[in-house]
Design a protein around this nucleic acid. Structure first.
Lengths: 151, 151
DNA sequence: AGTGATGGTCAAGATTAGTGACCAATTGGA
DNA sequence: TCCAATTGGTCACTAATCTTGACCATCACT
């Protein structure tokens, strides 16, 4: 049997992860566009996905999303331009600035969370609620586990 | 509780997929570099991951990897340059060219498959063989499922 | 022969990623 | 109080990556 066929039938973890990621991204942003947020690109998710309602620091967003600070900086520039967030001084540290969602940003965050929940609910319905819950449990472990080299 | 904390503790499918993808990629290419393939970038995976020992057409690689033909073309250029593949005329269709792995390419393919297997074996060992097998089974369904909108 | 579809490349653009240097404010000691 | 090391953030630049449209040769089918 051909290698390409084997990979189709029993894809490895990397292939499954990349297929899932791109599919989820595509669906999420398609739906967001339909629901009044057409200018957002998947890239902006690095900020919006981890943003707190009360505001977050750029450094924290960088750490959580795994992006460089620079990237966060330019994304925030764009999101400010699009009206999703504002930069405010951080009262706790005068070096820092808080990235705070506007009303539009809060709307996006709520909708994005709802869409993701709907996507997952559809998967759960298709494969079975219990099976999906167990899948998520193990996935969380796998995603968190340090690289295999560390063992 | 803060949204960013919730996302940390119960990440959604997209976050899990992206963490897993980047971690796996990083480990795979780090190890490949150690094992004699230092010039390869994750990008090249779109070709090498799906390449058949007998050779594959660019169009097939594009379809399987989800990349545009263009991208495959430039990747193949680079892989030819690096000595991993050759372009050969396809005896079955004079328009087409077969992308055929060289000896070096075959070595890379074998090592990459072995490394991926080792990464997965480590995960399976950590979470339990049965649990991991079930995880993979459900993951394959989720990754294959058409977007939730289709239901 | 003639038409539409397919395999592949060329060219140009927009988007995204990664670097090093830099400044201002904070922290923790001497 | 003052200094050095650290941290939060931006600027400027380069490389890598993705996306599109146009184009030619060949094929499949009439």
């Amino acid at each position: 049997m051909r290698r390409s066929m084997r990979k189709q039938e029993t894809p490895d973890l990397g292939i499954l992860a990349s297929r899932t990621l791109f599919r989820v991204q595509k669906e999420l942003f398609t739906r967001l566009a339909e629901e009044g947020h057409p200018r957002l690109r998947p890239r902006h998710g690095a900020v919006l996905a981890y943003l707190d309602e009360e505001g977050s620091r750029a450094t924290d967003l960088a750490a959580q999303s795994g992006q460089h600070k620079q990237v966060i900086g330019t994304l925030v520039d764009e999101l400010v331009e699009l009206g999703y967030v504002e930069r405010q001084p951080d009262p706790a540290d005068r070096r820092a600035k808080l990235i705070v969602p506007t009303r539009k940003g809060l709307d996006q965050m709520a909708k994005a969370d709802a869409i993701m929940a709907a996507i997952e609910a559809a998967h759960a319905h298709a494969v079975g609620e219990e099976a999906y819950a167990e899948f998520k449990r193990v996935f969380a472990l796998v995603a968190r586990r340090p690289s295999a080299e560390a063992q």
